[in-house]
Design a binder for these strands. Sequence first.
DNA 1: AGATTGACTGCAT
DNA 2: CATGCAGCCAATC
Length: 118
Amino acid sequence: MSQPSPGRPGRTTGVHENIHSVVRRIPSGRVATYGQVAAFEGSCTPRMVGYAMASIPSGSDVPWHRVINSKGTISLSPGSDGQQFQRAMLESEGVVFDERGRVDLKLFGWNGPGLKRG
DNA sequence: AGATTGACTGCAT
DNA sequence: CATGCAGCCAATC
């Protein structure tokens, strides 16, 4: 796998790559919050995650649609193309949305690669 | 070089 | 549930 950033976890730049890698680890049918991704990445903040998401080009292999905010809702504006795409994509993976467009994080929330069934 | 922004989070009111 | 405030730090102008 390409590793554009050298083995320096303390590096500030290149956070996108790290975040993208973490997002890529989110299994299908699961969603993770920005805070979770940030916490799992280990050295970035939710802000950086959101920024990295916006930096993901279309066609990327990063399942950015599996990243939502702590409220279990899609951060993008409701009605926006990206928002509709994200919701449609999640539903297609088995994620169920509430009538108000919310996801139950305790059902579909990603617990990290350490958790396998439960 | 400084100022502004941003797909966030958490707590208080 | 809406609003306000503080913390976070890279990207952008």
